[in-house]
Design a binder for these strands. Structure first.
Lengths: 326, 326
DNA sequence: TTGTATGCGTTATCAA
DNA sequence: TTGATAACGCATACAA
C-alpha cells in the first residue's frame, strides 16, 4: 500500500479509501490510484485490514457430515448470498460430535469470524459459553428448536413427522413402520421420530415395537434395515424412512424381494431429492426449502455484520409431496 | 493476551509461547499460564497472529459447482486432512466461470491463504499471473492436464474415456453413443469426450454424429437427452454418460420407454456413486479415488505450508467397474 | 477531499 | 527459560 501511495503521489490513507470507500475520493485521485493498483498488481492484505478495523467478512459453517448430499443445497444458498456481499465462507465437518463442534467453534472465534452457522442444534456447554462471550451472530439451521442459541432458520422436523403420520392414516395404512438414522446426538432425527409417533397416536394408529429401527447411513445399510423390519414385523404396510438416502435403499431392497411398492408396502422419505422424485415408483417425501434456508441463514449473518442485527426465528415450513410410493 | 500475562505474572511473549511452542517453557510456567487461559476463557486472536507471523493456516478451495454431489467426497478428504493439522478450509463456487474463479482467487490471496485448491483446470491469464506472483502452493484436482499451474492431483479423464470405449468394444457393442454435460469451460468433460472418441477409433468403432449430445445438468435433462438420442440415432446400442447423475436420468428414461438395459441398450457412467451401484440394473461406471484426491491435495498444501514443498504430479488412476448395465 | 498520528494483538528478534 | 522492543499492513480518529 505504501508503494501504491508513493507511485500515485498520495498518502496510504487515500489508497485505503480507494479500496474501501471510493465515493469519498475525487474522481481523478481515484483514477490515479486505481491505475497504479492495476499496473503493479497490488493485492491488499485483508488480514492487516481486519486487525485494524476489528471486523472480518468471514463466516463459519459447521455441518454434521460433509458427505450428506442433502446439505449441498443449503451450502449453495449460503455461498451465493455470501458471494454477493463479498463475504467468505469457512466450512467444516464436526462428524456429528458436539465436542468436535466446540473445538471448531473456538478455532473460528480465534479467526475472528463475523458470524457462525451451525447445522446441529445440540451443543456442549462450552460451545454455548464461548459463543455467548464472543457476542457474534449465530444461526442454527438443522431443526426448529424451542431455545436456539441466537437466531434460527429452519423447519420443524417433528411437525413433518406428524404430517407424515397423518398422511399414512389418510391413505389408509394401518400398520406403520419407522426406520431412522441412529439417533444419538442427532436432534433432528429424534424430533422427526417423536413427531411421527405422536402423529400416529393422534390418528389412532399404533405401531409395533419391532417396526421401529435405527440404522447406519447409506443405501446398503438402509436395505439391510428394511430386510430386518420385514422379518420382524412382516405385516407392516407403510414405512417412514428418516435420513438421507434411506428411502431409496429401502425401495431397492423391496424390489430385490419382489415386493410391489406401494401395493405390498408403502414407503416415504424425510428428505426430498431429485433422485427420489425419479425413482420408479417415485417416492413420497417431505420437501423443505433447503436452498432458502441457506440463503436466509447467510443473510441473517450478513445483516448482523452490517449493523442490522435483529432477533430471528424463521420457520420456512415444509410440505408432503405425495408421489407413487404411498 | 496482556490480561493473561498480567494474571499469570509473565510477559505476553511467554503467553504466546505457551500457545505456539509450549515445549520451550518450563513446566510450572506453562501450567500457570494455561490455568489463567482456562479460567478467564481467553481466545487468542489469530488475525493478529497471522499478521505478525506473516503465515496463516487458511486453505482455499474453489469448486465449479457446490451442488455436484461427486465433489462431496473430495471435499470431505480435504476437510479431514486440514482438520488433523489445524488448518481451516475456505470454500466457494465459481459457477464454472473462469472470471469468477479469478475474482475468488484474488479475494483468497487478499485473505493471505497459505494455499489454494482449484478443481477446474481452465483459468484466465489473470488467475495465472496473480497466483504466480503470490507464490503460494496451488493444487489442481479436476483433470490430469499436461501443464498445471503448480501441483496436480487427479486422474486422467481422457484415459477413462478411452477405457470406456474399449470396454464397449470388448462387450460387443457396435453403435456407441455419447451424452455429456455442456462442454463450454469444462476441461474435464472435453477430455472425457476426446478420450472416448479416440478410444472408439482405436477399437475400430465409428460413432454416428447424431449419437453425440450435450445436455444440461440434472436427472430430467439427462432423460430428455436420452430420449432425443434414441430418436436421432435409434440403432445405438451403448451410451456413455459423462457427468454427475446423467446415467441415472438416462436409465430412468429407458425404463419409462420399456427398454431393457442392457439388452436393448447398454449404459455406462463417468462417475461412480452409491446410487449408481444400487440401481436396477446396477450401473457400469468409472471409479476414481475421490476421497483420496482430496486427501492428497490437502496434504500437498499442508506440506508446502510447513516448509516441505516439493513438485507434485499425482495420477491416482481409475478403474472401470463393470456392472449389469453393460 | 486529503493527510497525520496512532493503534489493532500478536510474533520475530535479540538480549539477558 | 524468559523478557523488552519493534514490527506486521492496514483503518480509525481527528485535523487541515
Amino acid at each position: 500500500m505504501k508503494e501504491v501511495a508513493r507511485l500515485a503521489g498520495v498518502s496510504t490513507m487515500t489508497v485505503s479509501r480507494a479500496l474501501t470507500s471510493p465515493g469519498r475520493l475525487s474522481e481523478q485521485t481515484l483514477r490515479r490510484v486505481r491505475e497504479v493498483i492495476d499496473r503493479i498488481g497490488y493485492v491488499p492484505n485483508r488480514v492487516a485490514g481486519n486487525l485494524s478495523s476489528d471486523r472480518t467478512t468471514l463466516v463459519a459453517l459447521i455441518v454434521p457430515n460433509l458427505r450428506n448430499a442433502i446439505l449441498a443445497e443449503t451450502i449453495k444458498g449460503i455461498n451465493d448470498v455470501l458471494f454477493k456481499h463479498d463475504f467468505q465462507l469457512m466450512i467444516s465437518d464436526c462428524a456429528n460430535s458436539p465436542v468436535i463442534e466446540e473445538k471448531l467453534v473456538r478455532t473460528y472465534l480465534a479467526q475472528q469470524v463475523c458470524g457462525i452457522i451451525l447445522h446441529n442444534t445440540m451443543h456442549t456447554p462450552g460451545t454455548k459459553t464461548v459463543l455467548r462471550a464472543a457476542g457474534i451472530p449465530c444461526v442454527e439451521t438443522g431443526n426448529l428448536i424451542a431455545s436456539p442459541l441466537d437466531m434460527i432458520v429452519s423447519y420443524s422436523n417433528s411437525a413433518a413427522g406428524s404430517a407424515m403420520a397423518r398422511h399414512f392414516a389418510e391413505r389408509g395404512y394401518r400398520r406403520p413402520g419407522l426406520i431412522t438414522l441412529k439417533i444419538r446426538d442427532r436432534e433432528r432425527i429424534r424430533a422427526a421420530r417423536r413427531g411421527f409417533l405422536a402423529g400416529l397416536r393422534t390418528a389412532g394408529l399404533s405401531i409395533d415395537r419391532n417396526a421401529i429401527l435405527e440404522v447406519d447411513a447409506g443405501l446398503e445399510s438402509a436395505g439391510k434395515g428394511m430386510a430386518q423390519l420385514l422379518e420382524a414385523a412382516p405385516r407392516t404396510d407403510a414405512v417412514y424412512l428418516v435420513g438421507d438416502v434411506l428411502a431409496a435403499g429401502a425401495l431397492f431392497e423391496c424390489q430385490r424381494r419382489g415386493l410391489r411398492v406401494p401395493d405390498d408396502i408403502a414407503l416415504a422419505s424425510s428428505d426430498d431429492s431429485e433422485w427420489l422424485a425419479n425413482l420408479i415408483p417415485a417416492m413420497t417425501t417431505v420437501r423443505y426449502p433447503r436452498y432458502e434456508i441457506g440463503v436466509q441463514a447467510a443473510q441473517a449473518i450478513v445483516d448482523s455484520a452490517l449493523g442490522r442485527r435483529h432477533p430471528l426465528r424463521l420457520d420456512l415450513g415444509f410440505e408432503i409431496l405425495q408421489r407413487q410410493s404411498t
